[in-house]
Design a protein around this nucleic acid. Sequence first.
DNA 1: CACAACGCTGCACAGCTGTGCAGTGGCACG
DNA 2: CGTGCCACTGCACAGCTGTGCAGCGTTGTG
Lengths: 330, 330
Amino acid sequence: MSGRRRFVSAADVARRAGVSRSAVSRAFTPGAQVSATARERILAAAEELGYRVNRLAQTLHQARSDLVGVVGGNLGNPYISAQLDALSAGLHARGLQCLLLNSAQGGAADLARLLDYRVRTVVLLSGAAPDDLIRLCASNGARMVLINRPAPPKGTLADLIQADSAQGGRLAAERLIAAGCGNVAVVISGSRTSAKTERAEAFEAEMARHGIPVTRWAEGPNRYETGCAAARALLARPGLDGIFGVTDELALGVLNTARAELGRTVPGDLSVIGFDDAPVSGWASHRLTTIRQSLDALTRATLDAVDRPAEAAPTCEHIPVTLVERNSVA
Amino acid sequence: MSGRRRFVSAADVARRAGVSRSAVSRAFTPGAQVSATARERILAAAEELGYRVNRLAQTLHQARSDLVGVVGGNLGNPYISAQLDALSAGLHARGLQCLLLNSAQGGAADLARLLDYRVRTVVLLSGAAPDDLIRLCASNGARMVLINRPAPPKGTLADLIQADSAQGGRLAAERLIAAGCGNVAVVISGSRTSAKTERAEAFEAEMARHGIPVTRWAEGPNRYETGCAAARALLARPGLDGIFGVTDELALGVLNTARAELGRTVPGDLSVIGFDDAPVSGWASHRLTTIRQSLDALTRATLDAVDRPAEAAPTCEHIPVTLVERNSVA
DNA sequence: CACAACGCTGCACAGCTGTGCAGTGGCACG
DNA sequence: CGTGCCACTGCACAGCTGTGCAGCGTTGTG
């Protein structure tokens, strides 16, 4: 009572209920042998004291954790936040806990701190996955789930989940070509995640196949404001009639700046297409045509990977992408 | 090597380096007594094996955790996701870990599972804070930080952080009155957080003082779509000239639906004002006039509360609110 | 009534760390 | 050379849980 109160332990409950500590442990273990009367008395004492079994000690003993590390940067991004919402809800429903790490300004050393908590699995949402971290996970026997990233070195226990970036880039190109665009640009942020580069490269390749020149913008973080800046720079010279934002957040920055600040009409003067299909892209204020990577499918695949037993063979799941037709492309 | 690999322990490192386990522990404890040569050898062995000190056992021993529980629902909400981004980055910078719990469909029993991990602090972002949980935290000596919620029962160790909801509601009312509105509505979701109700009630009180009738919409979750539905219902009958969305997400649903679907011009025919100042509200596509609760101030206050020593007296911090003038009110 | 079976309980240990305490060796100083 | 000091090291314990094993009393059966 004086100063800092300690956490209630099983020994406290045992003392109060007049039984041994083992009995308390058994009372909280389904299927263990305890008499009904003892269990009742123990549960009552636990309730009174506010006892909860200590998962730290439990995990320590069982060498089996319910902690899942989730690593991601740019959590304010509309698509990523939706993804995190769905993922955390799913983990919760499975009785797993979500240890969140914001990787915005963290190197491999910081990420490694997740392992200090003996997470059973590490889910990497975005940002770079340093090889150090992958090696560290491997040598500690922790499973990894890599979303939209390149395959790790051979022999590491990592489930891959990849939306078909190349196909998405191609779809975007085809759509702009169908709209009659003849002078286009692709906006990719300065932080070159492999998935984003793939999208851009597939887009450029398809355009090249049709002999259409592509300007590439690759500066700044993956943020809305970067899209705004790109629009200002790219549209300063006339002629450009199509822009592919490699992320919805970027594309929306382009779209809004072109419309409100630069006086372009979209999709009249200019076509804009994005990638992700974040909820905000469907709002009446945007109606952004975009390449959807189904959030449901992505989440389901992630949870499936987390559910997989620790010794299962690594898998690779592909998430199909589809064109979502709205109102930002002619 | 066969099947599931165990986590590397300090004993493994000790064996490899040819020292006692204590030496390994000391090598990783700043300020502890180890000879330079031993430390060097130990660090090398640890590096080779991929050893990391087990925070679970460490916490268990020290009765001092670096885990901060963060509870929130509706993580896809533009303001909340920005808040979570800033908060998790701040915790990370302080060397604390963020145990995230999505409280969307969880009762007190689920929330209580956070305590199983002996979190040092629980931060409640939104959703209802059941008294059970507060009692449980108290009896386990875990500190709480309550954001935009009513004060807990006396004697519980909880830091309060409250934006001035009443002042915000009043500001919104004053602004609509200044715009010449004479027939207004307030949109509040069905889930009645105390903060949201306070905002609405202050708004209604101020309007009543000027003899202006207020229609109240209180159905559905706190989502964009709820704002859309509210707009459709409220604007079916003519006459309404001002709407206060108790959350930016709600207000944006109203704004977009009024403009794109119902053919109203905002701020010509109709004035719309929100509350939060989420990043997306400032986008050129919306330019929503709103009541800002400074994200910086909120985050700083939260982190200050987390930093406070466990035995410090509970505090109550007020976050000022300000009117952000944009382009959705006449 | 004797004995086996059975349900329940407590002891003791493992799981991994940090640290107080004692012990060891080396070194400086008188 | 003797003695004290100092740096370093290892032992042992605490912190909290789950569980194998043995012991206990009770009950049922021949």
